[in-house]
Amino acid sequence: MALLEVKDLRTSFYTRDGIVRAVDGVSFSLDKGETLGIVGESGSGKSVTCYSLMRLIPEPPGRIDGGTAMFDGQDLLTMSQKELRKIRGKRISMIFQDPMTSLNPFLRISTQLIEALRLHYDVDKKTAINKAIAALEEVGIPEAAKRVHNYPHEFSGGMRQRVMIAMALITEPDLLIADEPTTALDVTVQAQIMDIIKKRQEDLGTAVILITHDLGVVAGTCDKVNVMYGGRMMESGTAEQVFYEAKHPYTRSLQKTIPSLQTKGEELYTIPGLPPDVSKPIHGCAFYPRCPYPKTGKPEGDRPSLVEMADGHCYADCGFCDSSAPIETVLAKNDSPDEVEQAGAAE
């Protein structure tokens, strides 16, 4: 049985401007020791997916409209708050996008580190502090015994992010959800942090959900990848399937935008147009307005269904478009999209 099995998760925000369908039918499963990457543009619903699993969606305006998320046989989406408290912060922990939002600036690091330990385990303060020091050492904080009593502002940005990881790992969770844990950091610290997470996985078999828009980070760490667009899943599979045998036009376009892969001197490839406005209902294919394929009439009604191949590779089936041409040729034709047109400027 998978450690976590999410089926058809749907979460919306009921705002004055309309219903924001932030997550609109997301499914995936995750085994012990596995890493799942969730990628997609800003606003595609990556964070909301994870907040939903942690039941941290502000209600109102938010609401989990449907789906199941079976964690070790129990549904996270319907369990009582009491049951949830036994799991959240102990068996599932989360690293948030911005370290300063989850570190309390007025409390010493030590106090914050031992809070979860003392809540979930029967340990005395001294043991807890020792565990906290060990946790800081594990993430490479020098002089941990001294620095454990510092306040967050006495650490550099990279060190704060490492403290966050120590805090998330201290209860030895079965599942770690990391929301852009390295986006604000420079590449050297980023590499150190990904190494810490990988090591923990090897030692304790922790499962990890990693949210990021950096496909390089995904390539280096993830077993499986989910590609999201406009709150929906466009493609999922093993990292190898998604990187080498990508089926969906959005996945292919996204790969093409990566600056480090592009030849110097040429104009960088960008996906023409803007991401969809999820506060309006999307009919048919969410990627339709930006898709490089020649379109045979606007797809109304049903969205493309997800097809799953025998090897588990899954993608939104472009049934109603003429996607018979190889995508390389299609993308090559669209190589230098006009800047001005992209941003929607009138003549």
């Binding site: 590449v187 590499a191 990904m194």
Partner: peptide, 25 residues
């Protein structure tokens, strides 16, 4: 070292290659 820390979007090479690791901060 700065260059070798840049993650490359290629699962096969990325999961096996050796980086030049700088010590600490």
């Amino acid at each position: 070292a700065l260059m070798s820390a840049i993650p490359r979007p290629d699962p096969t090479s990325e999961k096996t290659r050796n980086r030049i690791v700088l010590q600490g901060d």
